[in-house]
């Protein structure tokens, strides 16, 4: 008798069983995506879920420890920490999404060009990427952030620029490998144009690895953005930026007001953790052969 794997049976196991199987196989990915979804919901629903306004001082409630009125306490101006973390999610996710998209939009075509055409132009592109990679990432982000000046714009430019070479290198390597595959070569021999080869063969093949890198880069962007704000660059107070909230709280740490730094830091960590786990999970899910150990990007 031929044994048929359970997975392929048309009349599969019940929904519960298949859910359990998906859960077992992609536990980390699902946990990561779940936490990301939570923070996205928090960011979108910020005005609905937050009990107070994020930037209205209340001098009667300065430095209040966590209690029923202020679940995570208040800061030195009496602003509710929970509310500021909720609104801060908007800033952090916005910075992460915009800078990662910008890096992908710049880096992928550059890498694609370098990988497909090669030659002098391709060489120049990749050497420029090497120059960007010659700087430690947080140090380059600091230098760019300082050059553009404190503020959201400087932060976005800094994080995007630091992330571009990661995408370009991946795209270049993928393109160089894919364009020499037999079926792509035969497509070219049959007269497929550059645009056609890119659309039909290279981009679809590149999608999975770029998605993994983008997910990991979102975590890197949140962490780097928070680091820049902590150091006084990036988004400026009174905006409820998580990194600058930790920085504000650090002055009150020794005098016992631990909640001001602790909770925003936990928020940063949970988001970065979620993107890292989701990125790793995606890599395993999209390419089962990929080694469990790849480069994790979220280290500034």
């Amino acid at each position: 008798m031929i044994e048929v794997p359970v997975d392929t049976l048309a009349v599969g196991p019940g929904i519960a069983a298949s859910t359990a199987r998906i859960w077992r196989r992609h536990r980390m990915l699902l946990v990561g995506l779940g936490v990301v979804a939570f923070w996205v919901a928090v960011a979108v629903l910020a005005p609905v879920v937050s009990p107070y306004a994020p930037d209205v001082p209340d001098m009667t409630a300065r430095l209040a420890p966590p209690d029923l009125h202020h679940l995570l306490g208040t800061d030195e101006y009496g602003r509710d920490i929970l509310t500021r973390i909720v609104y801060g999610a908007r800033l952090s996710l916005l910075v992460a999404i915009v800078s990662t998209s910008a890096a992908a939009v710049l880096g992928v075509p550059l890498g694609l060009y370098a990988g497909y055409r090669g030659g002098f132009g391709g060489e120049v592109v990749m050497r420029i990427m090497d120059i960007l990679l010659a700087f430690p990432s947080l140090v380059l982000a600091l230098a760019v952030g300082a050059a553009v000046g404190p503020g959201m714009a400087g932060e976005l430019v800094a994080i995007s620029l630091v992330s571009v070479p990661v995408f370009a290198r991946q795209a270049q390597a993928q393109t160089a490998a894919i364009k020499n595959l037999l079926y792509v070569e035969s497509a070219r021999a049959a007269g497929a144009t550059f645009g056609r080869v890119v659309r039909a063969h290279i981009l679809p093949n590149m999608f999975a690895p770029v998605l993994v890198i983008a997910t990991l880069n979102l975590g890197f962007a949140v962490l780097t953005g928070a680091s820049l704000s902590f150091l006084g660059l990036g988004v400026q107070p009174p905006a409820p930026e998580w990194g600058s909230m930790v920085s504000d709280g650090s002055q009150y740490l020794v005098s016992g007001q631990w909640w001001m730094s602790l909770f925003p830091g936990l928020a940063i960590m949970s988001v970065v953790f979620a993107f890292n786990v989701a990125g790793d999970g995606l890599r395993d899910a999209l390419d089962p052969r990929a080694r469990a150990a790849g480069r994790t990007l979220s280290t500034p």
Partner: peptide, 22 residues
């Protein structure tokens, strides 16, 4: 390894101060 790459360094430093000093 997962929490090590996800933790903001500056925050971890503050946590250590909070626990071991304060």
């Amino acid at each position: 390894s997962l929490s090590g790459v996800s933790m903001p360094l500056f925050w971890l430093g503050l946590l250590l101060i909070m626990v071991f000093y304060s």
